[in-house]
Amino acid sequence: MIYGLGRGALRAVHELGEISLFGLSSLLGFGRQRHRAAKLITAIHEIGVRCVPIVATVGLFTGLVMGLQLYYTLVKFGAESALGTAVALSLIRELGPVLTALMVVGQAGSAMASELGIQRNDEQVDALQTMGIDPRGYLVGPRLVAALICFPMLTAVFDLIGIFGGYLTGSVLLNVDAGVYWNRVFESVSWADVQGGFVKALVFGLLTISICAYRGFNTHRKASFPGVRGVSESATRAVVWSSVSVLAADYLITSFLL
C-alpha cells in the first residue's frame, strides 16, 4: 500500500512537471507565432465571450442564495446590516474565482480537451508539425494567454452580478436597507481583497487551461483507449483534474494570502 501510494505521488509530481513544461513551451511557442492578435481574439472569444452567459447566470444564483442564507444566519445575531459585507467578501475572496474557474472548465475546458484530442487523433497536430508550425504555440499558446486575460474579467463579472444577487434577496425580498447594503459593500471591500481574487483567477486560469490542453493534446499518450473513447476519457479527466486542482490551489493561495 505504501509502495502504491509512493508510486502514485511520484507519478502525480512527474505529471505536474510535464504540465508545467507543456504550458511554458506553449507560451514561448506563441511568442514565435505569426498573426498572434488574430489567434488571441479567437481564443478570447472561445474562453471569455462564450463563457459570459454561464458565469453571469451562476453568479446571479450564487448571490441570490448567499443573500438568503447569510441573512437568516446574521439575523439570529441581530447583524443583518452586515449582509453586504458578508456577501461581497465571500464572493470576491473565495466563491468568485473558484466558481468562475469551475464554470469555465465545464464550458471551455472540456470543449478544448475534446477538440485537441480529436485533432490529435485526426493527425492534424502532426500535420502542423510537418508544415513547420509549432503545434503547441499555434493551438495551445493563444488559449493560455486568453485565459490570463479572461479569467480575471470573468471573475469580476461573477463578483459584480453575485453582489447584485445578494442585494436582490437581501434588500428587495427581505427588506435590508439598500443604502446600508451597498455602503457595507463599499466600506468592507479593500483593494487587497480584489487583488487576492484576481491573483487566484490568474493562477486558476493558467492551471486549468494548461491541464485541459495537456490532456487533449496528449490523448494518444495519456488515454487508456484509442479513438473516440480516448477523446472522451481525456475530456473527462481534464475536467476532473482541473476542478480538483482549482480547489487545491485555492487552499494554498488562501493560506498564503491570509
Binding site: D122, A127, M131
Partner: peptide, 30 residues
C-alpha cells in the same frame, strides 16, 4: 523543418478551415 511536405493517410485537413484556408495555412504561418 519544412523543406518537405507530408500527405497523411486521412488527409489531416482542418475541419474549421475552408479548402482555401487549409491550403494557405503553411504560407500564412511559416
Amino acid at each position: 523543418t519544412h523543406c518537405f511536405s507530408y500527405m497523411f493517410q486521412n488527409n489531416a485537413l482542418f475541419d474549421s478551415l475552408t479548402a482555401f484556408d487549409n491550403i494557405a495555412l503553411p504560407l500564412r504561418e511559416t
